[in-house]
């Protein structure tokens, strides 16, 4: 479904991705793990079209999407819950969710999806009229994921959905990610919490300073001594 071929990106002179290749197949949960500054968020930004790779190609169903602007990529069915949640603080929770469905015009179906998201995250329901900026960190994370779901994406990019959450909530978020996937959405999951991510993912890529150093089925990556030492605390 999604293929990255030898992607190179730069922030001014910082060479952030040095030839990253990865594949996400229809129906999978693929996780991208790695230490701080490895280039995980950059990879997601490149897929979403927020930064242009200087070299390499990004293909969705065989069609190159790297030349497209971000808003056009989203229309092809790729949505992202970005790092740091990026909730629109001055807009209400409801408006944030409606913006997730900005590209759609089918009002009844949007309504139905709103119900679906609220069923997934019941805490958002009581806060629909509240400004996004007044939510707690965990609630904002739910809102960010819910907002990304509102477009009915084929491919959902999640950047550290468990960041800053209490352990109980982390568990809940991972359960929800898995259930979203079981309902048919393909997921590319970036995580610091490597253990939890590997336990729900089908396949995994390990990124280090802009290059993929390890890839394979999640169970194998989980078992590899390299990953154990680096990310799972031995």
């Amino acid at each position: 479904m999604l293929v990255l071929e030898q992607i190179h990106t730069y922030y001014d002179r910082i060479h952030a991705l040095k030839g990253v290749s990865l594949t996400v197949r229809q129906g999978e949960i693929v996780t991208l793990i790695g230490s701080n500054g490895a280039g995980k968020s950059t990879t997601l930004r490149a897929i979403s079209g927020l930064i242009k790779p200087r070299l390499g190609r990004i293909l969705l169903d065989g069609q190159p999407i790297d030349p497209l602007p971000a808003h056009a990529v989203m229309r092809l069915g790729i949505s992202q819950s970005p790092e740091g949640r990026r909730i629109f603080a001055r807009l209400t929770v409801e408006e944030n969710l409606e913006l997730g469905a900005f590209t759609r015009n089918d009002k009844p179906a949007i309504r139905a999806d709103l119900e679906r998201v609220l069923a997934l995250f019941p805490r958002l329901r009581e806060r629909l009229r509240q400004r996004g900026g007044t939510l707690s960190g965990g609630e904002q994370q739910m809102l960010a994921i819910g907002r990304a779901l509102m477009s009915r994406p084929r491919l959902l990019l999640l950047d550290e959905p468990s960041m800053g959450l209490a352990p109980l909530l982390v568990e809940q978020i991972f359960r929800i990610v898995r259930s979203i996937n079981e309902q048919g959405t393909t997921i590319l999951l970036v995580e610091q919490n490597a253990h939890a991510a590997l336990s729900i993912a089908h396949r995994a890529y390990v990124l280090e300073t802009g290059t993929v150093v390890l890839e394979g089925p999640a169970s194998e990556v989980l078992a590899s001594s390299q990953v154990r030492e680096a990310y799972l605390g031995g």
Partner: peptide, 19 residues
């Protein structure tokens, strides 16, 4: 609504499919 979103955060607005 799109205007208000763009006013707050352009790149996240673009992630919503807003031109």
């Amino acid at each position: 609504r799109a205007m208000r979103a763009v006013a707050e955060d352009k790149s996240t607005a673009a992630l919503m499919g807003i031109n």
